[in-house]
């Protein structure tokens, strides 16, 4: 398959079941909602060492948020419910409770609860007040800037993590430009995040290493500077490869995001130095979700 001069590999991305939740952060204005959301979703690029994968899903208008202020929805993904609960609680307490004018609400209303105010209320040292509004419990915790308002809990659902595709280009600036175009298109798709910096990862990894105790190492088959020294997947004209990883609430959400991203790259075409689109997998035996590039684009 060739679109606009760009070859689409006959391969697939391999993804895994994860647990996910969404929270809504509001603040006096969008800038301060971003401060809280960026802090809460910081250091959450990969479950390999961060404990969870997180990202800002989208901006919310005041009429879309529970308290009528501007806000952001943030998605969190982890391999298990216990880990997700720990990460969300820790991050809520250290990053949102602390952020001026912020308030924190559930973004998913069914599933297993992840405590928010249920535990953070103890910070109020007895001065906290609960209010049940529309069947949901909220906590008002007195803090130095006024009151921190938070919902009792958010809820976790089954999700999918690790959808991906690789952009192979003739130069590093061209690969990056293609990634930026893809991310811009993918950010319009709901229920997904691209957890790496700016949505893009340049250090795709393979399982295992020559070194003991190292579980993951550089994906040498896609590293352009060593293509003459290893069993490479790259043709001579490829000078830079970048990857976009997608976590989504459902497989269909990831399908849509991958389609939007790859189509945005293909629109740039071969004349912008993009030569191939590929995807990362582990032979198809580890992850139950397979995203075949040619099927998604068909």
């Amino acid at each position: 398959m060739i679109i606009n001069g760009i070859a689409i590999d006959d391969t697939f991305a391999e993804a895994f079941p994860m647990k996910a939740t969404r929270v809504i952060i509001t603040a006096l204005n969008l800038e301060w909602a971003y401060h809280a959301a960026r802090a809460m979703s910081g250091f959450a690029t990969s479950v390999i060492a961060c404990g969870c994968e997180a990202g800002i899903e989208r901006e919310l208008l005041p009429e879309e948020t529970p308290d009528g202020r501007p806000g952001l929805s943030v998605l969190f993904f982890a391999m298990g419910g216990k880990g997700l609960t720990k990460q969300v609680q820790t991050r809520a307490g250290q990053c949102v409770l602390t952020s001026p004018t912020s308030a924190l609400f559930a973004g998913i209303d069914e599933g297993k609860p992840i405590p928010l105010g249920e535990n953070m209320r103890y910070y109020g040292d007895g001065f906290q007040i609960s209010k049940v509004i529309g069947g949901k419990r909220y906590w008002r915790i007195p803090v130095m800037d006024g009151e921190f308002l938070t919902e009792e809990a958010t809820y976790m659902v089954e999700a999918v993590g690790g959808g991906n595709f690789l952009i192979l280009a003739e130069s590093q600036p061209q690969a990056l430009a293609a990634c930026e175009a893809a991310i811009a298109a993918m950010k319009k798709v709901p229920n997904v995040i691209m957890p790496f910096p700016g949505g893009v990862v340049r250090s795709g990894s393979k399982v295992g290493s020559k070194y003991k105790g190292q579980n993951a190492s550089t994906n040498d088959a896609f590293c352009p500077t060593i293509k003459g020294m290893t069993k490479t997947q790259l043709s001579p004209e490829i000078e830079s490869v970048m990857e976009i990883v997608i976590d989504g609430l459902t497989k269909e959400d990831i399908d849509k995001a991958m389609k939007a991203g790859i189509e945005a790259v293909c629109e740039l075409g071969a004349e912008k130095g993009i030569r191939r689109i590929s995807a990362g997998n582990y032979g198809g035996k580890l992850g139950p979700y397979h995203f075949h590039l040619r099927e998604i684009l068909a």
Binding site: P66, D67, G68, R69, A103, K131, I133, G134, Y138, R140, G146, E147, L149
Partner: peptide, 13 residues
């Protein structure tokens, strides 16, 4: 005297 964030939410209920 304070502006309390929970009040708009409470009234919406």
């Amino acid at each position: 005297t304070h502006t309390l964030a929970f009040l708009p939410l409470w009234f919406s209920g």
